[in-house]
Design a protein around this nucleic acid. Structure first.
Length: 674
RNA sequence: GGUCCCGUAGCUCAGUUGGAUAGAGCGUUGGCCUCCUAAGCCAAUGGUCGCGUGUUCGAAUCACGCUGGGACCGCCA
C-alpha cells in the first residue's frame, strides 16, 4: 500500500465525472500558485468544453458528491479551477501514521513481479572512469535503486568491452613495462590510462608515417617511426601542400599531423617518464607495432591463444578493479560482469548471423554484412509500434574482412543477458551516440525472435559531459576523473569542518561522505538529455552544491531528536487506529512540509515511468528546503504547548524517514552530524 | 542532405501528457545566532521562456518554418 492522497481525490473526481456525464477523462491535480487559494486544484476547462457545461456547473456536482470525504475540508471554484482545502488534522494524522509505520517510506510493490536488468557504466577498459562516463554510472545506479524501491528484482550488469581495437596497444604496452620492471605508481586504472594514451599515440604516429609513404612523401628514416619531430612535421606539411593530391586528402593529412604532434607533446609534458620509457621499449623490442597490434586483436578475437588471453585478462581485470574501487566510493555496485570476449567465443554470434541471413535481413556488400533496419522495421510493424516515421539507416555488423563488429556481438549479448537473468525488462544506460546501434539490437531481436523479447529492451541515453568546451578524450589523457574530483571535494569540505569541534576521524568521515554525495548529486540533478559542461570549481564548491544541503537537513533533524532524548522528551506513539492527533498544523512552514512529504511515493513512481531521475533529486531539494524553513520558524523543543511539541517531534521523525528513503534511492551517504 | 536531442534571469538549472501573476540555487545588495548545528533562514535585485507563424478561451509546453549548439547517418565501440 502506498499513500497517495492527492491521487485518491483525483480518482474520486474522475469517478464522479464518469457517473454524472459518462466521460472518462484524466484530470490532473496541480498545486495552486498561491497557497491561499487552496492545497490542491483541478482545472476544469477541458472537461467543461467536452461536456458543454460551465466549470461552475461541473464543480457544483462534484462538490455535492464528494462532500462526505473526511480529508477535504472545503472546496470551491475560482476562475475555472476547482480548489480544495484539505482537513489539515486528518490529512496530517493519516500521513504521519503511514510514514512512521512503514519500514521504508516510499517503498511500494508497483513493480513487484518484475525482473529487471540494468546495464550501466560498461566503460572501455583502457582508462579510468572519467566524469563523462561516470554520468552513466550515476544514472544506472539510481535507476537500479529506484526499481528496487518499487519492489522489482534488479540485476545490475557491467559489459566489459575488452574486444575494442583500442585495447590491444594497451595490452602490449602494459606487459612491456611490466617485464622491464616498471610498476604502477598511482591508482592502477590511472596508470593504465597513461599507458593506453602513450601506446595509442605511438601507434597513430606510425600509421600516419605509413600513410605519408603511400602518398609518395619520403619519411625521414633517421627519426623514430613512433616519433614526430618539429622540423620533420614542417617538412612533411610543406611536401603535402606542394603535392598533387586532392584538396581533401591534403587537408586531412595536415590536420592529422598537426593534431598528433600536439598530442605527443602534451603527453610528453604530462607523463614524461612513461612516455619516453615506453617509446624506447617499443623501439627496441617491437619491429612493427601496427602489425603486432593487429595480431593481438585477431588472436584474442579467435580466443585460442592462451598466452594472449592471459595477457589481456590480466590488464583488463586491473582496469576493472580500478573502476570498481571508484564506483565503490560512490556506493555504486554491480552484480555481474559480462565479457564481450566470452560472447564472441561462445558461438552465439554465428548463430545470430545465420538467423538474420535466413530471414533475409542482411544486405551483402562483398564480405561485409549490413543489417537492414528499415526493412525489419517496416515489415514487422516495428516502426508503427514505436511511432518511427523516418527511414532507419542500415548498420554494418560484419566488416569487409568478414569479421563481426560490435553491434553484432551486442545482439548476441542481449539474447544471453535476457535469458541468463530471465528478465522482464532490460535497461541499457548508454550514451546517446549509440542510438542507432541500440535501435539495431532491438530490431535484430525483433526480426529473429519473438517480438516480446525486443520489447523488453530500453535504451536509456544521456548527453555527454564536456570539459571546457571539449570532450573527454582518453586517447589524449584529456579527462577529469571522479577520483580526482573526490580528492578536491574532500579538501574543500575539510576547510569547513576544521573550524568546528570535530575529531580527526569525524572530519575524515564527514569529508568522505559529503564529497561523494556532492559529486553524485551534482550529476544526478541535471536532466540527462542536457549536455553538461563540466566546471571543476563549481562541482567542488560547497556553496554551489546541494548534495550537502540534503545531508545537513538530515543532521539537523537528527540533532533535534537527540536533544529531545537528552531532555527526556518522547513523542507519543501513534497507533494505526488513531483518528486524529491533537494538533492542527497552522504554521505555513509546517503545512508546506507535510504536503511535500506526502508526494514522495508519487515522485518515485512517476520518475520510474518517465525515466527522469533528476526529478527525484529536485524533489529531495524541495523537501530539504521545506524542512530548513520549518526548522527556522517552528521551534520544536521550545514549542509553546505539549501538543505542539509532540506534533513537531512526530514531524521531525517523519522528515527523517523521508530523507532516509531519498538517500537510499540516490545512493547518498547519511550523516548524523556535519 | 536526413534523423534525434538541447536553447528559460548575469551564471547553473527546474517547470513541457496546454492552465491562474514563469520558479529555485549561485551572484549582487541588505537583514537574522541570549533560541533545536548560520553548510541555514528572510528580503531586495534580475526573464522579448532562441526567433517567427499557426492551433486554442488560454502556449515556455502542441504544429509548421527559421536560427544557434551537439550526437548519429557503411566497415571504431
Amino acid at each position: 500500500m502506498i499513500s497517495r492522497l492527492y491521487t485518491e481525490i483525483q480518482q474520486d473526481i474522475m469517478e464522479i465525472l464518469k457517473q454524472e456525464y459518462g466521460v472518462e477523462k484524466l484530470i490532473l491535480w496541480s498545486k495552486p500558485h498561491d497557497i491561499n487559494l487552496g492545497d490542491v486544484s483541478f482545472p476544469l476547462f477541458s472537461i467543461a468544453k467536452e461536456i458543454g457545461k460551465s466549470p461552475q456547473e461541473i464543480s457544483d456536482i462534484i462538490i455535492k458528491k464528494i462532500a462526505e470525504s473526511k480529508i477535504i475540508q472545503k472546496l470551491y471554484v475560482k476562475g475555472g479551477f476547482l480548489n480544495i482545502f484539505l482537513d489539515r488534522e486528518i490529512f496530517t494524522t493519516n500521513l504521519i501514521k503511514f510514514i512512521l509505520n512503514e519500514p521504508l517510506y516510499g517503498y511500494s510493490t508497483t513493480r513487484e513481479s518484475e525482473r529487471i536488468i540494468v546495464e550501466h557504466t560498461s566503460s572501455n577498459p583502457n582508462a579510468p572512469l572519467h566524469i563523462g562516463n561516470f554520468r552513466n554510472s550515476v544514472i544506472g545506479d539510481v535507476l537500479a535503486r529506484l526499481f528496487k524501491m518499487l519492489g522489482a528484482n534488479v540485476n545490475v550488469r557491467y559489459y566489459v568491452n575488452d574486444l575494442g581495437k583500442q585495447v590491444a596497444p594497451l595490452i602490449i604496452g602494459y606487459h612491456l613495462l611490466k617485464s622491464n620492471g616498471f610498476h604502477a605508481d598511482c591508482k592502477i586504472d590511472a596508470w593504465i590510462g597513461q599507458i593506453y594514451a602513450t601506446m595509442n599515440t605511438l601507434l597513430e604516429i606510425q600509421q600516419v608515417k605509413n600513410l605519408l609513404n603511400t602518398n609518395d612523401i619520403a619519411v625521414d628514416q633517421t627519426i623514430s617511426i613512433y616519433r614526430l619531430e618539429e622540423t620533420e612535421v614542417a617538412k612533411y606539411i610543406l611536401f603535402i601542400k606542394q603535392g598533387e593530391k586532392e584538396k581533401e586528402i591534403k587537408e586531412n593529412l595536415v590536420e592529422t599531423l598537426e593534431k598528433l604532434k600536439l598530442v605527443q607533446d602534451s603527453l610528453l609534458q604530462k607523463i614524461p617518464i612513461i612516455y619516453t620509457e615506453l617509446h624506447k621499449l617499443v623501439l627496441s623490442n617491437i619491429d612493427n607495432l601496427f602489425n603486432m597490434t593487429n595480431n593481438f586483436i585477431t588472436k584474442y578475437l579467435e580466443g585460442k591463444d592462451e598466452g594472449i588471453k592471459e595477457k589481456y585478462r590480466e590488464v583488463v581485470n586491473n582496469t576493472l578493479y580500478g573502476h570498481i574501487e571508484t564506483l565503490k566510493s560512490f556506493n555504486i555496485i554491480h552484480d555481474d560482469f559480462d565479457w564481450e570476449s566470452d560472447v564472441a567465443w561462445s558461438g552465439e554470434v554465428k548463430y545470430i548471423l545465420e538467423e538474420l541471413e535466413k530471414n533475409e535481413f542482411l544486405r551483402h556488400d562483398a564480405k561485409a554484412r549490413l543489417l537492414e533496419n528499415d526493412k525489419i522495421g517496416s515489415q514487422l510493424g516495428f516502426k508503427e509500434k514505436y511511432s518511427i516515421t523516418y527511414k532507419i539507416p542500415d548498420i554494418i555488423i560484419v566488416n569487409s574482412e568478414g569479421i563481426p563488429l560490435y553491434p553484432c556481438r551486442d545482439i548476441a549479448y542481449h539474447l544471453h543477458k535476457l535469458e541468463k537473468f530471465d528478465a522482464n525488462y532490460c535497461y541499457n544506460v548508454i550514451g546517446k551516440q549509440q542510438q542507432l546501434p541500440q535501435l539495431s539490437v532491438k530490431l535484430a531481436l525483433y526480426g529473429i525472435f519473438a517480438q516480446e523479447l525486443a520489447d523488453k529492451i530500453t535504451h536509456i541515453d544521456y548527453e555527454y559531459v564536456t570539459l571546457v568546451g571539449r570532450k573527454m578524450a582518453a586517447r589524449e589523457l584529456e579527462y577529469v576523473t571522479p577520483d580526482e574530483l573526490f580528492e578536491s571535494a574532500k579538501k574543500e569540505v575539510t576547510k569547513i569542518t576544521s573550524t568546528r569541534n570535530y575529531t580527526q576521524e569525524e572530519q575524515k568521515e564527514i569529508a568522505k561522505k559529503v564529497a561523494a554525495s556532492s559529486i553524485k548529486y551534482h550529476i544526478l540533478k541535471i536532466d540527462s538529455n542536457k549536455a553538461v559542461i563540466f566546471d571543476i570549481k563549481k562541482a567542488v564548491d560547497p556553496n554551489e552544491n546541494t548534495g550537502p544541503f540534503l545531508q545537513y537537513s538530515y543532521a539537523r533533524a537528527l540533532s533535534i531528536l537527540k536533544k529531545a532524548k537528552e531532555k527526556g522528551l518522547k513523542p507519543k506513539q501513534i497507533s494505526m487506529d488513531l483518528e486524529k492527533i491533537d494538533f492542527i498544523p497552522e504554521k505555513k512552514e509546517e503545512w508546506e512540509l507535510i504536503k511535500c512529504m506526502e508526494e514522495l511515493p508519487s515522485v518515485y513512481i512517476s520518475a520510474a515511468e518517465s525515466l527522469k531521475l533528476d526529478s527525484i533529486a529536485n524533489f529531495a531539494f524541495q523537501l530539504a528546503s521545506a524542512f530548513h524553513k520549518f526548522y527556522d520558524k517552528c521551534p520544536v523543543l521550545a514549542a509553546e504547548t505539549k501538543e505542539m511539541l509532540n506534533f513537531r517531534l512526530l514531524l521531525v521523525m517523519s522528515v527523517i524517514k523521508c530523507l532516509e528513503s531519498l538517500f537510499e534511492v540516490m545512493g547518498l551517504d547519511i550523516l548524523d552530524k556535519m
